[in-house]
């Protein structure tokens, strides 16, 4: 293979890795939006919180895997508490209330972050046994951690698919998105389903932040960038559709990565052009309700 082909393959790996990471964050956003009807502007904050949890616990334990083992359950728990104390009062309310509360949460989370860990940029070390690059040619190589990251994201995506398609909880989630009352009259506590879905969304976003921490560093406001691109993903895929979020995230990964290489002067614009094109073609997104 020529250096050019290898370079292309490396970009492809980067695109897939970015897309998968984006999917983990966007899947929770689209579930919470599609099932509970909540516009959650604070969703990017969960990504940020995940990254900082990884930083704090990796610093404490000296081991990223141990940090993940502590931080993932912690963020799930955090999601349960947040839903119980705040979000469950937003169901069925006007989007204005949701936007106000969740925007307020962004400010609170950033302020708390500033108070607890400060405003410096931090790095999280790559786990020792993955801290090497796989040489591909004389000059090109690929970091092993990024490959591992993609593999982990793929595994989580597969688990999420199994959860939604094959379990009774998944059936209740899909049914509840369509007809909440009917699910209740089957004897299922829809409030519990909502709480679990919300916490799952929080944990997925936080997990993505944790995995990304060693590759991007950890910095103030890192959730906001993710939030915007996540909304683009959800809109492209169709609100509420996990399949759509996956496809949307992959498309964005490809367009963003290859855009930065082959059309760097437009790279910031391309994903939005993609969104516009998809919406002209399918106004409800790739797998939106109207296009189903």
């Amino acid at each position: 293979m020529t250096d050019g082909t290898i370079f292309f393959l490396i970009q492809l790996l980067n695109a897939v890795q970015y897309g998968l990471l984006l999917f983990l964050v966007a899947s929770g956003l689209t579930l919470i939006f599609g099932i509970m009807g909540i516009i959650n502007l604070a969703h990017g904050s969960f990504y940020m919180i995940g990254a900082y949890l990884a930083f704090v616990f990796a610093d404490m334990t000296g081991n990223l895997w141990l940090a993940l083992a502590i931080a993932v359950p912690l963020s799930f728990l955090f999601g349960l508490v947040l839903e119980t104390l705040l979000f469950r009062f937003l169901y069925g309310r006007d989007h204005l209330y949701q936007v106000l509360l969740t925007y307020g949460l962004i400010l609170i989370f950033e302020e708390l972050r500033s108070l607890i860990v400060g405003n410096d940029v931090h790095g999280v070390p790559v786990p020792h046994f993955l801290d090497f690059s796989i040489p591909l040619t004389a000059t090109l190589s690929y970091p092993a951690y990024r490959l591992a990251l993609s593999a982990i994201c793929l595994a989580v995506t597969a688990l999420l698919y199994l959860l939604i398609q094959k379990t009774k909880l998944g059936m209740a989630i899909r049914a509840g998105a369509f007809n909440r009352e009917m699910v209740q009259t089957l004897g299922i506590d829809i409030g519990l389903i909502y709480r679990l879905v919300f916490a799952l969304g929080v944990a997925l976003a936080a997990f993505a932040g944790m995995l990304a921490a060693p590759t991007t560093s950890v910095f103030p406001g890192m959730g906001n960038q993710v939030l915007i691109i996540c909304f683009v993903t959800v809109v492209i895929g169709g609100i509420g559709s996990i399949k759509g979020a996956f496809l949307g995230a992959m498309l964005i990964g490809l367009v963003d990565t290859f855009g930065a290489v082959y059309a760097p002067q437009f790279s910031g614009l391309l994903v939005y052009a993609l969104m516009a094109a998809v919406l002209i073609w399918r106004p409800a997104g790739l797998f939106g309700a109207a296009a189903r």
């Binding site: 059936m171 899909r174 049914a175 009917m182 009259t185 089957l186």
Partner: peptide, 22 residues
């Protein structure tokens, strides 16, 4: 409603309420 359902009351609503995505 879920507690009433578990007490043994089932419902067949007007329009049937079938979940089309299942």
């Amino acid at each position: 409603p879920d507690r009433i359902a578990r007490a043994g009351v089932a419902y067949v609503p007007e329009g049937r309420g079938i979940f089309p995505t299942l």
